[in-house]
Design a protein around this nucleic acid. Structure first.
Length: 519
DNA sequence: AGTGCAGTTGACTTT
DNA sequence: TAAAGTCAACTGCAC
């Protein structure tokens, strides 16, 4: 009998060695040798929310991970297979092992995959240790406890990369020689092949080294203009942290980013003579707040994975066409996807996103609002399209945000963005529109496909109309109890009244959260 | 000079 | 940085 069984660390959306709790628990003293495992799962990459640009970012990141692992003497096996069949194969060839991974708040399919893996592990008496890597709490009892649990996770120390011991020959001999460049290219091939199907000329590069560089420049001063430049699509690209894809694919951990923010803050606090001190301290504060909100939103999908395909508030189910799209739906969907709605700013944003794989938060909200409210398309279809376009697609942020901007959560105020007002506010000089919709003003540019004022009015009436009856309000209260933020500054309370009365009054029109990721 | 009035601004509410 | 609506206070101008 082997007294120290093989410890397999299954890398999922956590492509790093630093601050990697699953790797740390696998390497604590008295355990066996450690083997990394990265799996290209064809069924998951074929889903309608997956795309080539995400695969490309993953490949970049895996490249960095394999290099770092070589330097640290951690062998990593890269496989193309479905789980749990792969685990079965590994058990046959290598014998029993212990499996380690991070808790994942992914899409429904990844959740089902994890259930299958859990069933397989139980059947074969393979221990599977799943540990958290962010502020999302699995099996959360009450939202009242969440903030405390989140803060405790985030304030714990970051974990140094562990030291590894040599693999026994029975395992090591079966690994491909990952030291050669051609072997590494072969390992990355499934992701690269998929990437080639999705041209994205402005795509952000993946890999931990790039992520660290973005973090460094943002904290060292690039973030000074963050608060005033994040809302316009023309300036956000440089002023935002651009860490979203790195957090989504785990080349950086949210905790290490947070600790870096705290360290930068104490440095900036000392630098009284620096002209950017004030703006940097303000930026760091709002950036930290967003990291908190990031986990807050992901917690919603963790607690209710059906958010990916079912309207949260029961009264909003069936509001938009959930069946076979009509001819009108299809025409509108295609116009929106292809950036030819006749609303130049909306079209410019969609084309920019398609070309770069990223757009700032506010414009994501506008694109969603336009599809759901003005075009009255069901959010599942449009949400899948946006998911594919986002290199930084994070299911736990995406689906709760999509539902929020579509007015189907019941606990958030209805936000219908006016595409003309947004153009005025965010692109007053029309530089952004001119760059991405150069044919504007010529005969080839379409006329608007809807009367946006009338469409917004109709959407407002429909959504507010649903909230009037008592049953609907009761449902909203229950949703708030399960998912709502307990931050007093964000309650559905009129702030002026809350500040002057002993017991703030919750108005009927504002049960729940008033906060978005953008504020 | 003070009054009347259209138009603007800002705080606040409603959808 | 949701947008639209309401209302009161203010402003600039004409008379």
């Amino acid at each position: 009998m082997d007294s120290s069984p093989l410890q397999i660390v299954w890398f999922k959306c956590d492509l790093r060695l630093y601050d990697h709790p699953a790797l740390a628990t696998a390497t604590v003293a008295a355990r066996g040798p450690v083997l990394g495992l990265v799996v290209f799962e064809p069924s998951l990459w074929a889903l309608p929310d997956a795309s080539g640009r995400q695969a490309a970012f993953y490949a970049d990141s895996l490249h960095d991970l394999l290099r770092a692992a070589r330097a640290a003497d951690l062998p990593i096996m890269v496989e193309t297979a479905e789980m749990p069949e792969l685990l079965n194969r590994l058990r046959c060839s290598m014998g029993s092992f212990v499996l380690h991974s991070h808790e994942e708040t992914g899409n429904w399919a990844s959740f089902q995959r994890d259930r299958a893996v859990l069933a397989w592990c139980r059947e074969h008496h393979i221990p599977w240790h799943q540990v958290p890597q962010n502020g999302v709490v699995r099996a959360l009892g009450s939202r009242d406890d969440w903030s405390r649990l989140h803060d405790a996770r985030m304030s714990a120390s970051v974990l140094a990369p562990p030291r590894f011991t040599a693999l026994p020959a029975r395992v090591g001999g079966r690994l491909p020689d990952a030291r050669s460049a051609s072997a590494e290219e072969a390992a990355l091939r499934p992701w690269r092949v998929l990437a080639d199907t999705d041209p994205c000329p402005g795509r952000q590069q993946g890999g931990r080294e790039r992520g660290l560089e973005l973090l460094r420049t943002f904290l060292a001063g690039r973030g000074a203009s963050y608060r005033f430049h994040m809302s316009s699509p023309g300036t956000a690209e440089q002023s935002c942290s651009r860490l979203s894809a790195h957090l989504a694919w785990g080349t950086l951990s949210v905790r290490e980013v947070l600790h870096a923010v705290w360290q930068a803050r104490s440095q900036w606090q000392l630098d009284n003579s620096h002209p950017q001190q004030r703006s940097m301290l303000a930026s760091l504060k709002s950036f930290e707040s967003r990291l908190h909100w990031r986990c807050h939103f992901m917690q919603k999908l963790e607690s209710e994975p059906e958010l990916e395909f079912r309207c949260l508030h029961p009264a909003t189910r069936g509001l938009r066409n959930e069946g076979e799209p009509t001819a009108l739906d299809t025409a509108r969907l295609e116009a929106w996807q292809e950036g030819r709605t006749g609303f130049a700013f909306v079209d410019a944003c969609m084309r920019y996103l398609a070309s770069t794989g990223w757009i700032n938060f506010r414009m994501r909200a506008m694109l969603t609002s336009f599809a759901s409210q003005h075009l009255w398309l069901h959010w599942k279809l449009t949400g899948e399209h946006l998911a594919r376009l986002y290199t930084d697609y994070e299911p736990g942020i995406h689906w709760p945000q999509i539902q929020m901007q579509s007015g189907t959560t019941g606990i958030n105020t209805i936000r219908i963005y006016n595409p003309e007002k947004q153009r005025q506010d965010q692109d007053p000089g029309s530089e952004f529109v001119a760059r991405w919709v150069p044919e504007l003003g010529t005969a080839t540019y379409p006329t608007p496909i809807v009367d946006h004022l009338a469409a917004a009015h109709l959407a407002r009436d429909r959504l507010w109309g649903l909230r009037k009856d008592t049953e609907s309000k009761d449902a909203a209260r229950q949703i708030f109890q399960k998912h709502g933020s307990r931050n007093p500054a964000c309650e559905g309370v009129s702030r002026s009244r809350a500040s002057v009365t002993a017991s703030p009054v919750v108005t009927d029109s504002s049960i729940g959260e008033q906060q978005t990721l953008d504020f």
